[in-house]
Amino acid sequence: MTKTVLKGAITSIAILAGAGMALAEGGLVINGDLELTTEAPAADHLAGHLTTVYSGWVFRDSFTQAMEMDDFDNPGMLFVDAGEAMWNEPAGTSGKACADCHADASESMAGVRAVYPKWNEAAGEVRTLEMQINACRTENQGAEALKYGKGDIVSLEAYISMQSRGLPMNVAIDGPVADVWAQGKEMYYTRTGQLELSCASCHEENYGNLIRAETLSQGQTNGFPVYRIKDSVLTSASGRFVGCVRDTKAETYKIDSSEFVALELYVASRGNGLSVEGVSVRN
């Protein structure tokens, strides 16, 4: 029974593969003056898997693409505004705002988004940006931890991410993070769920092809947080991972699990060289 379903799923993908949409011409230029890299040579660690990496923007239709090309047309900017307000608003028992320690985000946060997830020496762990925000809140501000995936934490992440817009993703994969990165890589290529799909089944072997009526992207995370038209809110990479794993009809990992930290690190490293998009728009 399982085998029949699986065979059906693979046949559908194979048939649909012929209908793959052409990749968009032209580039992603924001507000007419900031050109972002949406196509880059794949990092060395992808040798044998991919030769070129593409931002998810490339796979969207012209309307969705256009929504990201002008900050006014991008509804994600509503959340960036909210994140900026949070940055300046005192929180927790310390009565301190992010700005009290980190001052001007345009200086202190420049480049931060491009290197996350990254190793935190003091904590002895790999941290996603969401983890780092919560660590700052609980340890330094005396504030409660925020729920991952959507809501306030993603607004703040969006504001921080905007300070690195245009910089190339440059996540470290060696040294102290090597084991966690390897764990993430293994997860990426492991089939899960009733559909027995790995991340690679869709995002490495079939990007550019249709899954039902939707064009598959490479599943890059350089554009996160993402304003998904489907949800009309901002979503972080961890939030998207939960949805993606659920779509393979698998029991998902918890959104704040160590498994998703490993996966987020590995997937981010697959996008090294692509621009941080600040806040992207997808369907």
Binding site: L210, R212, A213, E214
Partner: peptide, 8 residues
């Protein structure tokens, strides 16, 4: 109006 592949 298309129906997406991913939970759409």
């Amino acid at each position: 109006v298309t129906i997406g592949g991913c939970g759409g």
